[in-house]
Design a protein around this nucleic acid. Structure first.
Lengths: 197, 197
DNA sequence: CGGTGGCGCAAGTAAGTACTTGCATTCACC
DNA sequence: GGTGAATGCAAGTACTTACTTGCGCCACCG
């Protein structure tokens, strides 16, 4: 017996562990800063196994981006909204924030990616893009109903930008004494009512 | 004569060219993705010269961060504001946007930096942090004057977040048919008046 | 005019890294 | 119980990269 840790792991599980480790490390150290050895070690597999699964490093990155950047589930959320604007926006905002939190690593990674049209870059932004499209349509409906004013595209972008800034900046700027939910409330409030007394 | 390009360049100029090249490449490819050879080539100097100036790669990065992340000049702007809230905010917003545009590369680089307390990370965020502090104080004054409502810290963070999202997302999301100035106008407008009709 | 300091150039070193290979081991399933 | 697929393991290859070194060239300054 060479290695005791050989306890009935399916190839799918192994694959998943490698992908998880890849995501984790790439987010911290970038595509070139991460070595296949590190990934294998963190995943608890042998480096050779990694290559047997994915062929080469680029394919691993591609698989990782594909795996973690599935289409957004906002589409499922939209039909079941209450109809009350403020509640809707809060639910949408929460969904977007959670989604962005999940792919935060990938987004940051894609920001500093050298090729602008790389697989990672495209995959990481596909989710947000789809969300923005849906959000634009939602805003357009609300504008048409006379509840909002302005260009729906701009409104959607602004709305997502608010959340984006919070998700990205959270780790770098000193912590505020507010929970994410409180901040979301504040954002919705400003978005809807403005700050002028 | 081995190399014709030896025409009276001061050491300071050489140093500056290396720093500029460093910034440019690091922004695109990250700290590990960039090689000293590339930097030297882009700067038009020999690789050995680079090491003679900075010693090693880390010191080069440090010098680069230090060089391009001097304290913000918002402090100079504040005293000469008109006093009219909307105009003030527009001027402040413009200054912040321009400043963030300048250090955008460094910020992105610091986002994906492995060590959270690295020199680069700290230096790149020093500017924004200082700005946020000043902005908080400005907001506090306006709240005290009864012109704004809410926690000044939150207001400042929100304000900067708006601009941050625009600066960062500009290159990745499909272009909008608005100029940066128009978008700033829109942002100020939303910030001040809200979007509810 | 002589020296000194900044630089180019070429070659080299040591370490890291992507990726391969051959073999032993274990587990699942027939 | 035997077979095959998935994996661990160790060693190795070819390449890149940070960094060094020794040398000669040239501009400038006294």
């Amino acid at each position: 017996m060479v290695n005791d840790v050989h306890v009935s792991r399916s190839p799918e599980e192994t694959r998943g562990r490698i992908l998880a480790a890849t995501r984790q490390l790439f987010a911290k150290k970038g595509r070139r800063g991460t070595t296949t050895r590190e990934v294998a070690e963190l995943a608890g597999v042998n480096e050779a196994t990694l290559f047997r699964h994915f062929g080469n490093k680029d394919a691993l990155i591609e698989a990782c981006a594909e795996h973690y950047c599935a289409a957004a589930q906002l589409q499922e959320l939209l039909p079941q909204l209450s109809g009350k604007l403020e509640d809707d926006l809060r639910q949408i905002g929460r969904a977007i924030r959670e989604r962005m939190d999940e792919v935060r690593d990938m987004i940051i990674m894609s920001l500093s990616d050298e090729e602008n049209d790389s697989t990672v870059g495209l995959a990481a932004w596909r989710g947000p893009q789809a969300v923005r499209q849906l959000l634009s349509e939602y805003m357009a409906r609300r504008v048409e109903a006379g509840e909002l004013a302005g260009d729906p595209q701009l409104l959607a972008r602004f709305f997502m930008g608010m959340i984006f800034a919070q998700v990205i900046g959270r780790k770098k700027l000193p912590e505020l004494a507010y929970s994410p939910e409180q901040i979301l409330d504040f954002q919705i409030d400003v978005f809807l009512n403005g700050v002028r007394k």
